[in-house]
């Protein structure tokens, strides 16, 4: 599970049946300093409320499919939260 930023949207009218009505967003993984930390990829929006520039939490692999109402879908990244705040303790040692 990781932090990410929504940087775009994807519209795919022709896609796997189970994914109709599911919002597809382009996300860029972030580290705990909110700096880019990985390649941009496409995730389904399991909160149905995320939009561009939102800071979000995501889950990957099989658990991403479990985030959707219809769980038997080919999904490996899902937005499961819209972040209000990130608290990081000052780096100790």
């Amino acid at each position: 599970m990781y932090l990410g930023k929504v940087i775009g949207t994807v519209v795919a009218s022709h896609k796997y049946a189970g994914l109709t009505g599911v919002k597809l967003l382009v996300v860029e993984p972030l580290d705990h300093h909110q700096k880019p930390a990985g390649d941009a990829h496409v995730a389904v929006d399991a909160t149905f409320q995320a939009g561009p520039n939102d800071l979000v939490t995501l889950v990957g692999s099989r658990e991403a499919a479990l985030a959707l109402p219809e769980t038997f879908v080919p999904v490996d990244a899902a937005i499961v939260g819209i972040v209000d705040q990130v608290h990081v303790e000052r780096a100790r040692r």
């Binding site: 599970m1 932090l3 705990h32 399991a46 909160t47 409320q49 939490t57 985030a67 499961v80 939260g81 819209i82 972040v83 209000d84 705040q85 990130v86 608290h87 990081v88 303790e89």
Partner: peptide, 19 residues
Amino acid sequence: GNVVATVKHASYHGHKLMI
């Protein structure tokens, strides 16, 4: 640290999300 998200999937309610 931790992440605060009020809008989230139901399974995350009631749990703290740590970094």
